[in-house]
Amino acid sequence: MNNAIEIKNLSKRYKNFLLDGISFSVPSGYICGFIGQNGAGKTTTMKLMLNMALKDSGEIEVLGKSGDDESLKEELGVLFDQPYFQEDWNPIDIERAVKPFYRQWDSKAYHQYLAKFSLDPKQKFKAMSRGMKMKLGMAVTLSHDAKLLLLDEPTSGLDPVMRDEMLDVFRDYLVEEDRTIFFSTHITSDLEKIADYIIYIQDGRIVYSGLKDELTEKYCLIRGGEGDLPQDKRKSMIGLREHTAGFEGMIEVTETGGFPPEVVIETVTLEDIMVHMSRNGETL
């Protein structure tokens, strides 16, 4: 199968929020980052994919199976903000608890991961630091040969060293051909380092879906002094900010002709894109 995840016209209405008929695909074999501001709909979408929340309408297909087929979870590794384990369990209890549910559980691999991540098999879950919890979650995920990882903010709350280690774990995971990672975050610097594809959601709508490089190569930042901004370029500017000493904004690279040579043009990062897009409520 080509796409690990296929979403078509998915809608879900909550009291104060609407996921409005979104559609996107996640190709298998790569890492796809899911970005958006808090409240944009990331967690909702992921819950819908797992059938933890129930959709109002639309189609969800994960690893070729319908979203509500529970056998799909054999091949799925899920890590939300924190893994869901009983606080008094230690890694050995956790293995005993989840092992019967997975046909492919590899006990040897599990213990190898525990050792690799320096996790004490006898330590209670509640006594672990956040980073350790995430690593434990990864150990569980990696021990049943999951083909797709769904991660919701896996690196938030981790210090830079831990984050780097987590990214390494993800990279190692992807060395096998048929594995995919879908991970939502608002720490765009992590995605800069590792993501192949980006899905960008804003206010319950998909605003971009495609290669990360294409997105960051499409735009650039432009800064100039007062008077350097041609009138006809105003409407092309995204997230324009004018101040006493000049202006600053984002624009498509193809539109950079026509500016005076004194302006400074720089490449964008995902963070720049997110910031500029939300500035005036713009859309791409």
């Binding site: 390494d168 992807l174 060395v175 096998e176 192949d196 990360k212």
Partner: peptide, 19 residues
């Protein structure tokens, strides 16, 4: 090295080495 191993070693995305 395979595309994926290379991406891991260089710490870049898989698409980059693929390209």
């Amino acid at each position: 090295p395979s595309i994926r191993q290379f991406a891991r070693d260089l710490k870049v995305s898989v698409i980059t080495t693929t390209r």
